[in-house]
Simulated scan of single mutants.
Amino acid sequence: MKTPSMAQEIRLIPLDQIDVLNPRERGSRVFDEIVGNIKAIGLKKPICVSPRADSQGVERYLLVCGEGRLKAYRALGEKTIPALVVRVSDEDAFIMSLAENIARWQHRPLELLAGIRQLLDKGYTTKAISEKTGLAGSYVLAISNLLRQGEERLLIAVETGAIPLNVATIIAGAGDDDKAVQAALQEAYESGTLRGRQLIVARRVIEKRQRHGRSAARPSTARRSEVSTATLVRTYQNEVKRQTALVRKAEFSQQRLLLIVGAMRQLLADENFVNLLRAESLTTMPKYLAERVWPAGSPI
Results as ranks from 00 to 15, higher is better:
99 A>N: 04
159 E>D: 01
59 E>T: 14
173 G>R: 05
87 R>Q: 06
22 N>G: 01
172 A>T: 05
295 P>Q: 02
46 P>L: 06
128 A>W: 07
277 L>H: 08
255 Q>W: 07
120 L>Q: 14
88 V>N: 02
184 A>E: 10
122 K>Y: 14
172 A>Q: 07
19 D>V: 00
85 V>C: 02
255 Q>N: 11
179 K>R: 14
92 D>I: 15
286 P>F: 01
64 V>N: 06
230 A>H: 03
202 A>Y: 05
191 S>G: 08
179 K>E: 14
177 D>P: 03
103 A>Q: 12
280 E>S: 11
214 R>H: 10
148 R>A: 12
67 E>N: 09
294 W>C: 08
123 G>V: 03
103 A>W: 09
246 L>K: 15
266 Q>H: 11
215 S>W: 13
109 P>W: 13
44 K>A: 15
225 S>L: 10
101 N>T: 08
177 D>M: 10
113 L>S: 05
4 P>F: 11
147 L>A: 04
18 I>W: 00
286 P>H: 11
104 R>K: 05
4 P>H: 06
124 Y>A: 06
85 V>L: 05
216 A>I: 05
33 E>H: 08
183 A>E: 12
284 T>E: 08
142 A>V: 10
194 L>Y: 04
51 P>N: 05
21 L>H: 00
216 A>M: 06
175 G>S: 09
90 D>E: 12
133 T>G: 06
294 W>H: 14
182 Q>L: 15
28 S>G: 03
168 A>K: 03
179 K>L: 13
269 A>K: 07
242 R>N: 03
55 S>I: 00
70 L>K: 03
257 L>Y: 14
197 R>H: 10
177 D>Q: 04
50 S>Q: 02
287 K>L: 11
9 E>Y: 00
271 E>I: 01
149 Q>G: 10
53 A>K: 09
270 D>I: 12
4 P>Q: 00
149 Q>S: 11
132 K>S: 11
80 T>W: 06
299 P>Y: 07
43 L>I: 14
229 T>F: 13
294 W>V: 10
144 S>I: 04
295 P>N: 11
92 D>V: 15
125 T>Q: 07
27 G>S: 08
273 F>K: 00
220 S>N: 09
249 K>F: 12
43 L>S: 03
234 R>C: 04
63 L>V: 13
10 I>K: 07
230 A>R: 12
30 V>W: 06
260 I>S: 08
16 D>I: 02
184 A>S: 15
263 A>N: 04
288 Y>S: 14
145 N>K: 14
253 S>D: 15
271 E>Y: 07
179 K>D: 12
40 A>C: 03
38 I>W: 01
146 L>H: 00
